[in-house]
């Protein structure tokens, strides 16, 4: 199963996504961090997200690109929380110089989804600042839009988080699972 969670900057989408995983997960919870360490600000963000996840039983895998490389570390009962898609695409384009970033990312996501119980992808709303980007950023936005369109089609649930408020654009709000989470083993 695939869930896509989106929202603007500071909308509370990360906090919502973690809460969402707590609601739907039955087996292991695995956090896939795509943000590369680019200096103090990204470290602060990584630290803040680590603090938010502390004590919630997440196993963290850091994978800035090429998601298929971690598919062998995933179990069929796992719920995966991938954060986030804008970083993943940026890393494929600028870190990896990937000529086909969209298909590479879709392929990686498909492998993860096929090997787990539920894949939750956090993305961002980047399309509303009204600025016309003609350079690499314009191409980046275009590719992000392609990923959003394809993933939203594929996903069973699409949720937009607006200042902590979830809006279910596709699929219904999940009901809490009865089973207790297994303790992380790695």
């Amino acid at each position: 199963m695939l869930t896509l969670i989106t929202g603007g900057s500071g909308s509370g989408k990360s906090a919502f996504a973690e809460q969402y995983v707590q609601t739907v997960a039955q087996g292991r919870r695995v956090y896939i961090a795509t943000m590369a360490d680019y200096g103090e600000e990204s470290r602060k963000k990584i630290d803040r997200h680590r603090r938010m996840r502390a004590g919630k039983g997440f196993l963290t895998l850091e994978q800035p690109h090429s998601l298929e490389q971690i598919s062998n570390q995933i179990g069929l009962e796992d719920t995966l929380l991938l954060e986030d898609l804008p970083n993943l695409l940026a890393n494929h384009i600028w870190m990896l110089q990937d000529p086909q970033p969209v298909s590479a990312i879709l392929n990686g996501l498909q492998q993860l989804e096929a090997g787990c119980r539920h894949l939750v992808v956090v993305t961002g709303e980047l399309f509303g600042d009204g600025v016309r980007y003609l350079d690499d950023t314009g191409r980046y936005l275009c590719l992000m839009g392609q990923l959003h369109q394809i993933l939203a089609q594929r996903a069973q649930r699409v949720v937009e988080v607006v200042y902590t408020i979830p809006i279910y654009h596709k699929g219904a709000q999940p009901q809490p699972t009865a089973a207790k989470p297994k303790k992380e083993t790695v």
């Binding site: 804008p86 600042d129 200042y163």
Partner: peptide
């Protein structure tokens, strides 16, 4: 908060803080 992350730090902080305040 629904655009490309600005290059300038104060602009990044502004858009994120507006979101946090609404939250």
């Amino acid at each position: 908060g629904c655009g490309i992350v600005p290059i300038e730090k104060t602009q990044r902080e502004y858009r994120e803080t507006v979101g946090r305040c609404c939250c």
